[in-house]
Amino acid sequence: MSIGNSPEDERPFPDMSEETHTSVGRALQQARIAAGLTVDAVSSATRVRIAIVHAIEADDFAPCGGDVYARGHIRTLARAVHLDPAPLIARFDAEHGGRPAPTPAAPLFEAERIRPERRGPNWTAAMVAAIVAVVGFVGFTAFKGGDGNDAKSQVAEGATTTPGKTASPTPKKGKPADPTPEASDSAIAAAPQDKVTVQVSAPGGRSWISAKDHNGRMLFDGLLKKGESKTFQDNSKINLILGDAGAIQLYVNGKKIEDNFRPGAVERLTYTKGDPEAG
């Protein structure tokens, strides 16, 4: 029998005197029961794990990973059960020493972290290097061929030079080497249509992010510092978890995602070849 799957099995808390304030967790639980929702239903609607929902309703905020994320979970759960989150946030701040300073996002997802798999060879970089090598070889061959023709013309001119005058060699200017193309984030504008390409950048702050492909293979799991960016590509789907979505800017298949994520909000997103459209 799963815990919290039947709202009828839960009993409302007894009436409390006016002097006693209902705790944050009890207020959320009472509102959920009054709305006829189970813990599973609230977890599915908010994407907050069942264990964390149970802990918050028991006024245990340790599994949230910090006060910043506890406040975000309280806000999300309050909206799901049709409560105004502002009084609950104010009560939480009063009981926990005021509005907390931002904390790194990584502890929230310690249970979900796995060792990143060894990445395969970067075929794109290998192809670029091969193309550069071919272009350089062709240019070198043409340059050497030009030197031979110049030498022959100099010998012919030397045979008809007027006696007493020394033919001065014609100075030659070497052809400048073609610059090596550099990979750039602007390449996302030409993202292939048969793949999904997602660029994640942190222009205004730092955030922990996790990215997986359609097979669930971990592409990246770590802290994206301010000013850094990562680009992920898959044949069909990219799954993202953003620890602080308000600090993140997304480009999907060459188009900017205009979602206004709140600072400190945790977002789980899925993008496919047909997007931009949050999954």
Rank of each mutant, 00 (worst) to 15 (best):
E117D: 12
R75G: 10
A190W: 00
H54Y: 15
A35N: 08
A126W: 07
L240Y: 10
E267R: 15
T162K: 04
D84S: 10
Y271H: 13
P100C: 07
W208Y: 13
P121Q: 12
K212M: 04
V39S: 03
A80E: 10
D60P: 12
H214R: 13
A105K: 01
N239L: 06
D60H: 12
Q30P: 03
G274T: 15
R217Q: 06
P163L: 08
A45S: 05
R75V: 10
G246M: 04
H96E: 01
I56F: 13
R71D: 14
G120V: 05
A86C: 02
T170W: 02
G136V: 07
D194I: 00
G264Q: 15
S17Y: 05
G65H: 02
I238W: 14
F232G: 00
P107V: 09
R206T: 12
F61A: 08
K237H: 03
I56C: 06
D147S: 05
A278Y: 10
P176F: 01
P176N: 04
A265R: 02
R79I: 11
F13A: 12
A51S: 15
I56D: 07
S43V: 14
I209D: 02
L37P: 12
Q154T: 06
D234E: 05
G243E: 15
T161G: 05
D59I: 12
S186F: 07
S43Y: 01
T197M: 06
Y69N: 02
A133P: 00
L28E: 03
S229W: 10
F140R: 13
S210G: 04
L77G: 06
A105Y: 11
N235I: 07
L28F: 09
T141C: 08
P263R: 13
K237M: 07
A265V: 01
K152M: 14
V128R: 13
T38D: 02
A78G: 04
S23D: 10
H21S: 12
P100S: 15
L269E: 02
A211G: 05
G120H: 05
A187T: 00
V53N: 12
L83H: 12
L77H: 07
R119W: 03
A105Q: 00
A278Q: 06
E157F: 04
M127T: 11
A58H: 02
P116R: 11
K173Y: 15
H54S: 05
A78Y: 12
P63V: 07
V128Y: 04
W208N: 03
A247K: 06
T166I: 04
E10R: 09
A86D: 03
S44E: 08
G205V: 02
S2I: 11
A125C: 14
V252T: 02
I33R: 12
D147P: 04
V48Q: 08
V68A: 13
V198E: 01
L108K: 09
T38A: 07
G243I: 06
Q29W: 08
E95W: 04
R91Q: 14
P169G: 13
V200S: 05
V252W: 00
A183K: 05
E57S: 09
A125F: 15
T46S: 14
D194N: 07
A70R: 01
R79V: 13
S44D: 10
R206S: 11
Q199N: 03
D93Y: 14
S17H: 09
H73K: 10
I241W: 00
G279T: 11
A126I: 03
H54T: 09
E117C: 09
P181M: 00
A105F: 04
I50S: 08
P163C: 01
T166E: 11
A51G: 09
D67H: 15
E267Y: 15
T22N: 06
